[in-house]
Design a protein around this nucleic acid. Structure first.
Lengths: 168, 168
DNA sequence: GCTTTTCCAGACGAATTTGGTCTGGTTCGC
DNA sequence: GCGAACCAGACCAAATTCGTCTGGAAAAGC
């Protein structure tokens, strides 16, 4: 009942991209340093995101990754499903191989409802919502290392949760 | 991002118990046959549920398990959390070991919201909601075996999903 | 066209989790 | 005391997660 690291890193990596001017090409290594993500792992994750059309990749020197769309057009649901595959609380809700249990399975109905709630929350949150307040871990660490003592917080930050969308 | 078999079996086993008069003591073996669950696995699951005070166990001959409360008083959330531990979409949302990422982490806020939605859905669904329409797999199989041909459905059943609670 | 720099694709593998089984108790009714 | 049932935990196989590594392939610059 947890999101995978891959999805977590994927979102984080994208926020790092989204913090830049749209279309700017950034190397994997830069993103990894910024967000404290293992290097070759993020590479694999970004490949999935490229296949899903969320980022564009450019090879060769001067290459790297860039967002394929504006951050307001990319939802967390797209990102997570591009990496983890479709969100499915149970086997029978994923492919339509039918429920193992017979009849109108109440358990499946329950899981299906819960799953739809999650998809709704993820679906209405965009990358730009996520980018706003997030301070990348790597940057904080780097700042800490530079001013080796006096570990003052980089920026005062009120921990405001993501606000729910106005009832549509 | 899936519920475990253990939780699934746990819910199924409890619906089998809930279909009986309250307080009736049933052996693991009977429940397993009814719901098509591996025998000793359900034993372990029921132990968790007993510790959580959802079922009562009775040892010795004539022993078995019975519901400790009426099905309307037991929520799916309780059942699932008794088996899987607290629902936590991410490490930092479980214990309060703080978020690995710094500052007001937007990702955690998002996951937290999704998680609360799931808890809400599970929390408002009771065991009696789940028991209503469910036809146990094992019983269907047994019926199929008895009337070896003419595999007619055991009971006509309109597959109505769990209805959402009225807006509170 | 050669070299360098970057991504690409997939094989590989360690660690963890899941899904169970098994064994040796312990408790209860008879 | 004996058999029927649960109890507690050790144990194990398979799947999944969380990565790493290697050998390309494409693009840019010379």
């Amino acid at each position: 009942m947890q999101i995978t690291r891959a999805a977590e890193y994927g979102v984080l990596g994208l926020t790092a991209l989204a913090r830049r001017p749209l279309g700017e090409v950034v190397m994997i290594e830069t993103l990894c340093a910024e967000e404290d993500i293992p290097n070759s792992f993020l590479g694999k994750i970004l490949q999935s995101l490229a296949k899903a059309g969320i980022v564009k990749s450019a090879r060769g020197s001067g290459g790297g990754f860039s967002l394929a769309r504006t951050p307001t057009e990319v939802t967390a649901l797209e990102i997570i499903e591009a990496i983890e595959g479709p969100i499915a609380f149970q086997r029978c809700l994923d492919e339509d191989l039918g429920c193992e249990h017979s009849g109108g399975c109440a358990l499946c109905a329950l899981l299906s409802e819960a799953q739809e709630q999650v998809r709704e929350v993820f679906g209405r949150t965009t990358l730009s919502d996520l980018t706003g307040r997030h301070i990348p871990n790597g940057l904080v660490r780097q700042a800490r290392n530079r001013s080796s003592e006096t570990a003052a917080p980089v920026m005062p930050l009120d921990p405001v949760p993501v606000q729910p969308a106005p009832a549509s």
